[in-house]
Write a protein that binds this DNA or RNA. Structure first.
Lengths: 252, 252
DNA sequence: TGGATATTATTTGTATCCAGTTTGGATATC
DNA sequence: GATATCCAAACTGGATACAAATAATATCCA
């Protein structure tokens, strides 16, 4: 079960619980980007009253995961005009954060990072994209905790959540041929290990460099997915479609 | 009247109005950092019911201006352990943002920036610290709009709000001797003009450099204020306090 | 007199209710 | 048949009523 949620249950208030549930559904794409949130339905399903549901929605709007669209509330969606901004900010924050992590990590941080890294590598065996991206997110969160200042950590977490959604969105709409076992996944794991090594060694420059590389790698995967290029495009077999007269051979 | 608030009234909903009012009171230090928010009192004064007041509080908690302290809600306060983080993040975001602004500014941005710059300089004549810091904030917001991506702008705005509060807090608790007309103020205005020039010229490197200088200047003013050093500390006249026996001369 | 427990009061979280507004559908008229 | 108008239903924002939890005070016993 996914749990990217901050308040990992132990939820005291109903409002917190509902908040976590809706958030999870948004991040897991169960609530599709752009779809409207039906408050009444959530009230019905959850069994609580409108008040805690409304609080949850208010918070999610404030965080940017939901947004008010005139009268109704929608799940925030992505458009291409945001892509540049997102990657730009991710690059900036990621590099700075990893540099700081290398300079400030404590032994406890290293332990937590290593554990998260191994969880990711374990997940990389099984072909579950959702769990994998979640493990990846959690690894980067551990790193962020290791060194980022509280402020930077918060910003980086916001960006990371954003990219998690973006990644899943691209996975759904885009090309999803054989990610598990792919070259990209191998490179990702290598990056993680390099990041860990640099941070463990306290090498800020190296951490910065690898973080940069890692962000580029991520960006290229997404763009490739979006553009539908599954590696070598030349391997396509263009075959005559049945039921077309010979003269109907289309250009392209 | 201060108006650092985003939704500059025209607020349709009661909740929005209350949100803006509370936010303003927090930023203006009318609601002191650390003090508890009395929901009932706000309900009484505003004349609306608990529902919109609660919505406002929920949003402000989500933004970090308020925070839940067990049962009650307090105005977020500063402690010295945050200072490093704040300046670190401010430096990072400020430099990046100004660089982007130089690379992407449109004519409309330049107009707005120039107007805000002149408002600041006009305020610099009158000795009103609150209005001055607000004009300063608004200038930097215009710059941020000029070039920062939507994401970066949001982060920078958050930091800027944070530093605005920090600045006012330091002004209240710290040394406040003759800021208006001071060397620091002159340097601030010069920085603003240099920033504008660099951005107008599209010189990203220069914008970055000046932004860095400006952030250092700001940081040094705050630390000086906090440490209570009003310029040359040697000018203190140490005089015998009346009503103390000669042997009672305290160490420091 | 001091400490502990019980009771009360205040505050916060939740539920329900009400009013205003908007949307969808149905009917009537052109 | 199409369009316009009106009515109804549903939803949102806001108000209030209710319940639960915590804090404060008072009383009783040692």
């Amino acid at each position: 079960m996914g749990n990217v949620t901050r308040n990992s249950d132990a939820g005291q208030r109903n409002a917190d619980r509902i908040y976590g549930e809706i958030r999870e559904k948004i991040l897991s794409m169960e609530f599709a980007p752009g779809s409207v949130i039906d408050e009444a339905a959530i009230v019905q399903k959850s069994g609580v009253s409108r008040t805690p549901v409304r609080e949850a929605i208010i918070r999610l709007v404030s965080e940017g995961l939901l947004l008010r669209d005139g009268r109704q509330v929608r799940v925030a969606s992505f458009d291409i005009s945001q892509l540049r901004d997102v990657f730009e900010s991710l690059m900036l924050l990621s590099r700075s954060m990893h540099r700081l992590a290398a300079l400030r990590r404590q032994p406890a941080h290293l332990t937590a990072m290593w554990r998260a890294l191994q969880v990711f590598e374990a997940e990389a065996e099984a072909p579950d994209e959702v769990r994998l991206s979640e493990a990846n997110h959690l690894f980067h969160m551990e790193v962020s905790k290791a060194g980022a200042s509280s402020v930077l950590h918060r910003f980086y977490e916001t960006m990371s959540i954003e990219t998690l959604r973006l990644s899943r969105q691209c996975f759904i709409v885009g090309d999803r041929t054989g990610y598990v076992g792919s070259e990209h996944l191998k490179q990702t794991m290598q990056d993680h290990r390099d990041l860990f090594a640099a941070i463990e060694a306290g090498d800020g420059d190296e951490a910065d460099r690898v973080a940069q590389r890692h962000t580029v790698l991520f960006r290229e995967r997404l763009t490739r997915q979006l553009l539908g290029m599954s590696g070598d495009i030349d391997s396509f077999r263009l075959q005559e479609e049945p039921g077309l007269e010979p003269s109907g051979r289309r250009s392209r």
